[in-house]
Design a protein around this nucleic acid. Structure first.
Lengths: 130, 130
DNA sequence: ATGCATGCTAGAGTGCGCTCTAAGTCAAGC
DNA sequence: GCTTGACTTAGAGCGCACTCTAGCATGCAT
């Protein structure tokens, strides 16, 4: 029950089986345990790690960036400071990206508002027979 | 002065000349005027359109999506409703994406905080000779 | 008039992150 | 014992958004 099959991991993470294998291979990192038949199973710890990786991806960190982070992880406890540094600079990056997205969104909203007044004006003109 | 050269448009938009030409070709839309020598120049209106397109791109709309929007634009005034609909559903999409990004960012921050307490504990242990 | 920056074209190339293919293995249920 | 279905592998393929190349044209500045 604390060991999930591939299909269960797919359901939990929202990633495809292909993508799970791709991450495993590209990041060369979490050694996914296998059953007697050579099939993968995912422990709770592994699942948590994958979810964290998903969060990094969802915020735009590249596969290479994540790989670098995990490589540090595997080098041991003394890399904690560096790992934190990596996360901190990524956080900053994401904040800036959010700021930019919000500004762009604001621009889009202004355009929508413009359409709205324009369409309202057209509608009331029609109603009044203009 | 209200007609910008390529290099000025590059400076204003933050896009490369390559990208400007690429957008022009892919979106098949804004007919960029040319000088006697066949070189492009950008009017203020065009610049504004390009900046709006940049906002759509910055919020993740695909080239194809933008093309669809502009195609509507060129079909005339009666497509205003549809264009607004397009923008509205894009807005919704961006909102959801923002929500997801913020959740992921929160996860990353918790991890950073974890590192911080961990490193603080290690530091004070060292200081006290443990 | 000469040199150099800027711009032009068509089309090829790149990097990223998946995503799929093909052929095979294994375990459980009928 | 046979089928079914979830899984395995190595490697090819794809879609997107640029990004660059090569070779040529134009036009301002010395």
């Amino acid at each position: 029950m604390s060991q999930l099959s591939v299909s269960e991991a797919v359901a939990e993470t929202g990633l495809s089986a292909h993508t799970l294998r791709y991450y495993e291979k590209e990041m060369l990192l979490f050694e996914v345990p296998r059953d007697s038949g050579g099939r993968r199973f995912y422990t709770r710890e592994l699942l948590a790690a994958i979810k964290f990786i998903s969060a990094l991806r969802a915020t735009g960190m590249s596969i290479q960036g994540i790989k670098d982070y995990i490589d540090l992880y595997r080098r041991g406890e003394h890399t904690a400071q560096q790992r934190m540094g990596l996360l901190q600079s990524h956080e900053e990056l994401v904040q800036n990206q959010l700021k930019k997205t919000r500004a762009s969104l604001e621009m889009i909203r202004r355009k929508i508002a413009l359409y709205q007044t324009q369409l309202d004006a057209a509608a009331s003109a029609t109603q009044q027979g203009h």
